[in-house]
Design a protein around this nucleic acid. Structure first.
Length: 498
RNA sequence: GGUCCUGUGGCCGAGUGGCUAGGCAGAGCUCUGCAAAAGCUCCUACAGCGGUUCGAAUCCGCUCGGGACCUCCA
């Protein structure tokens, strides 16, 4: 089998993946900031890395997958920021940041479950690792790469850049950075405009604040990830993932911090997913064009023509390569919805097929060879930097074969027994375990099956008597309920919920 | 302004210099009481202009268009 190759943002090329510790993989992915609700764009990294996580496990690796929750910082909720400043209110009337954190953490976990993502093995919170972050900042100060000013601590970029390659990951030139960085609040106290905050002191009315050797404040965003990644994955680990928009300054800064503290570059393979765009523009708060996940699922948004099932969104995302931008549109989502339905129904049909007796000695037959080629390519494509789009394309090429066997226009025995069994088992493993897809129709229980079977029997009897009024009534009324009945060859009937 | 990415058929999107991507939509046919589904067939494109090459969507240059990052951002 071919070996896994991943595109490393750091070297800007595909590299053979070799983990640091044989049989084990350490992977860190930047998680959500839980001061607000996740939108469609946020779904992409978590689904992308979920598939990577699943695939690494499929390859036999034991994976420690760490994804943080950023719950520290300057927290505000829409419409409530003004209250933040009023300190004389009763405790219960005041904005309690942990309430926000809890609310949006819960919502995030719910959405991730809807997407059928597997929870990370460790999901550390920033607030739970203040001690580690302070420790790391102290190390940086002792090493001479950070300095304190008025209770805040900054990273000394110029000093770091003098002996290290700052900017390599994001293709930045340090001299330009020192020139072009914009004016920001608190700039004057920094040595250089490009220096980033490790610890920010805050005024007493701020709610999110912790005691530190430099006074009361809160940790900088970049140090959070460095501290937690180091704690759980060690000074050097295999994969660090996140959106491309985090390349600079977040990941670049992480490299700088960790390199000083741990005396080595922290990450071997940097993997970055591209953005989801809407009308050609990145979806994000800067453009005020987000569609929240709850809105995607409910269809309750001016830009949405209908609701979309989370698994449809997952499929939509996997139909493109993770390093390409993906443009949102109702049309594209609906195409995914229909495509997924077709694929999933074929997959279910495949499970019901059985090979009776011996498959023909078909090893040389054209169809057998084709199916085996398409199946073999699953591994090849996935090993080539996780080309889920190509895996899905191959699955779609197999769909007509399955449907023809189901309709008996092609006998199951057109395949060898070996190939048929491989088809069944491999399709299941890949579509469910690796791509993490599942049925979009949930109302699938025993009682409903029984009722449907009854209706189908009655309808079949009516049809036998050419009582089309009754047979049509059953079909039409079910259609109104969103259940489609389909007559199939040989008098069989099947049904599906829209 | 700097750095980088990108422009594929009606839409979404794969694409390693030569070999059908795939999905959705559309057209025809088959099956069928009708419908739906399914199967088969068709629709065969690479922004423009140059260049390299026996051969380019794929490499190079220029032009035009779109975008990302440089500030919180998945």
């Amino acid at each position: 089998m071919s070996e896994l190759k991943v595109y490393n943002s750091y070297s800007r090329q595909k590299e053979v993946f070799t983990p640091l510790t044989r049989g084990h993989v350490g992977m860190y992915v930047c998680g959500p900031t839980v001061s607000g609700e996740s939108h469609l764009g946020h779904a992409r990294p978590y689904i992308t890395f979920d598939v990577i996580y699943r695939y690494l496990q499929h390859l036999g690796y034991k994976v420690r997958y760490v994804r943080n929750i950023t719950d520290a910082g300057h927290f505000e909720e829409e419409g409530r920021e003004a209250e933040d400043k009023i300190s004389k209110k009763a405790v219960l009337e005041k904005l309690e940041p942990m309430e926000l954190v809890q609310k949006y953490t819960n919502l995030f976990h719910w959405a991730m479950a809807q997407f059928n993502t597997i929870p990370p093995t460790i999901e550390p919170t920033a607030t739970g690792h203040i001690v580690e972050q302070i420790g790391m900042i102290q190390q940086l100060i002792q090493a001479g790469y950070a300095y304190e000013v008025n209770g805040s601590v900054y990273f000394d970029l110029k000093k770091y850049a003098a002996s290290h390659d700052y900017g390599k990951l994001s293709g930045r030139v340090i001299e330009d950075l020192l020139e072009t960085t914009r004016e920001l609040e608190g700039q004057e106290e920094k040595k250089d405009k490009a220096d980033f905050a490790l610890w920010k002191s805050v005024a007493p009315e701020h709610i999110m604040r912790w005691q530190s050797p430099w006074g009361v404040g809160f940790p900088g965003w970049h140090i959070e990830c460095s501290a937690m990644a180091t704690k759980y994955l060690g000074p050097e680990f295999d994969i660090h993932g996140g959106g491309m928009d985090l390349l600079f300054p977040h990941h670049e800064s992480e490299i700088a911090q960790s390199t000083i503290c741990n005396h080595s570059a922290p990450v071997r393979y940097w993997i970055h997913n591209n953005m989801i765009t809407i009308n050609g523009r990145k979806m994000g708060k800067s453009y005020n064009n987000q569609i929240r996940l709850t809105e995607m699922f409910s269809g309750d948004h001016p830009l949405l023509e209908k609701a979309f099932h989370p698994v449809t969104i997952r499929f939509f995302i996997l139909q493109t390569h993770y390093r390409s931008t993906l443009d949102f549109s109702n049309e594209a989502l609906q195409a995914s919805e229909k495509g997924l339905k077709r694929l999933w129904e074929a997959y279910e049909n495949l499970g019901r097929l059985t090979m009776t007796g011996e498959g023909a000695a078909a090893k040389e037959a054209e169809l057998d060879v084709k199916v085996r080629r398409l199946l073999d390519e699953f591994d090849e494509f996935m090993n080539d930097d996780f080309s889920t789009a190509k895996v899905l394309a191959n699955m779609f090429e197999i769909v007509p074969v399955i449907n023809s066997m189901k309709d008996k226009t092609v006998p199951v025995t057109a395949l060898s027994k070996e190939t048929f069994e491989l088809l069944q088992s491999k399709f299941k493993t890949w579509i469910e375990d690796i791509l993490g897809l599942k049925s979009v129709t949930e109302a699938d229980n025993e009682k409903l099956r029984g009722v449907m079977q009854l209706l189908i029997d009655i309808r079949r009897e009516a049809k036998g008597k050419k009582d089309f009024a009754t047979s049509d009534k059953i079909r039409n009324q079910l259609a109104q309920l969103g259940i489609t009945l389909k007559d199939e060859k040989g008098g069989e009937m099947s049904w599906s919920i829209e």
